[in-house]
Design a protein around this nucleic acid. Structure first.
Lengths: 210, 210
DNA sequence: GGTCGGAGACTGACCAGTCAGTCTGGGGGC
DNA sequence: GCCCCCAGACTGACTGGTCAGTCTCCGACC
């Protein structure tokens, strides 16, 4: 006889199972990589069954992409919100960088998946990958374009700069994932932001206003 | 009865087979990724046999790693040579960046392997990966440290800057691999170098001398 | 006839995905 | 309020295919 506390409606249980599978998958993929992980690992970690996994997801790949897509979308939204709050161009850029870095910091498993494990095999999924990364690039590029329009920085290839920024941030996070340095990842935010702002010719004065 | 023209000593033949296997493996890995490639693909592409492949290499992974190690080592040497030739710090940095970009440009298959495949090739590879990447980072970092000593740039975290540079270059090359832009990859060398030099506070004047 | 580079059929482990069946919550009839 | 029924969530043994790596044999050269 289950206690009232443990009661869960059927639909709650259902959502719960899906969540558990997804969360376990994140852990498993992060620790063993996509190809190193076996669906049975996810089954074991989630305390469900193979049937349940295939009830909610079409395939192993689909689990992976649900994970990535959900995360990247959230990330883009967070960046957007953080930037809205920032007053002044420099502050906004700082907010964008800080959001990315902090998010990776709090979700190392997802960071690992997004930055290291993203499988490059499936040609169909290569498109999605480009699209999702492009989303982040476009956001950064938008800020840079605005900076150019406002004559805050010289006219330049802002798309290139956006890719450079994404690459730079990714590499720094990867270093942290692999070596653990710097101890709190957040320590890189300030110097990293400075490097990025410098690169396009924006001087990182503390209180600049667009 | 083989003609005299076709004559090859046994040892020449031997070296030839090994080369063919390695070159074919580069093509195969580049087009299908490590996990998507099957040893029989390499056998087919090289026009040899499974026996030959396993005569020269211990395992599929070992083929992959031979490829990567050889390439990265060559790359580091080329960078070293190119930089030696450069007169002045800025020119040296330009030479380093140009060498990396040009090498990836002329060896797109290897670029693909190193930049896209390698990261998710398996946990055993990560250690070696860090080591080899560290090699490149140390080279760049060396130049930056010298720049600091010479008071050409402000004192800063040069290791971070080196990672930022590597990440930036990698991302730009990956964009080229995925989208084909910019048409001749070499077009990015100048603006990319400018971004990188700016990032650490080095003004890219055409004829500066240390 | 011995050795060595090479061929390619074969093996066995591994694993994504299936499916026939079980269990359970809750809706509808009384 | 009770019970019956069944949708549909969930189970896990099983399958079919794949593929890294092995083994045996062959032919060329010494």
């Amino acid at each position: 006889m289950p206690t009232a506390v443990e009661r869960l409606s059927k639909s709650q249980q259902k959502e719960d199972t899906r969540r558990k599978i997804l969360e376990s998958a994140a852990q498993v993929f992060a620790s063993k990589g996509f190809h190193g992980s076996v669906v049975d690992d996810i089954v074991r970690a989630s305390g469900t069954s193979k049937g349940a996994v295939y009830f909610y997801f079409e395939s192993k790949e689909q689990i992976f992409f649900s994970l990535v897509e959900e995360y990247v979308t959230t990330l883009a939204q967070q960046m957007h919100v953080a930037v809205q709050r920032g007053r002044g161009l420099v502050a906004q850029v700082e907010a964008a960088v800080a959001t990315l870095v902090r998010s990776f910091h709090t979700h190392p498993a997802l960071a690992r998946i997004v930055l290291l494990d993203w499988p490059n095999a499936g040609a169909e999924f290569q498109g999605k990958r480009m699209a999702l990364k492009g989303m982040l690039v476009e956001i950064l590029r938008g800020y840079l374009d605005r900076a150019v329009q406002d004559h805050r920085i010289e006219s330049q290839d802002t798309e290139l700069a956006a890719y450079v920024w994404i690459g730079a941030i990714g590499e720094v996070v990867v270093r942290w994932l692999n070596t653990g340095r710097p101890a709190p990842l957040e320590d890189v935010i300030a110097p990293l932001t400075r490097l990025l702002l410098n690169s396009v010719g924006l001087v990182p004065t503390p209180s600049a206003s667009a």
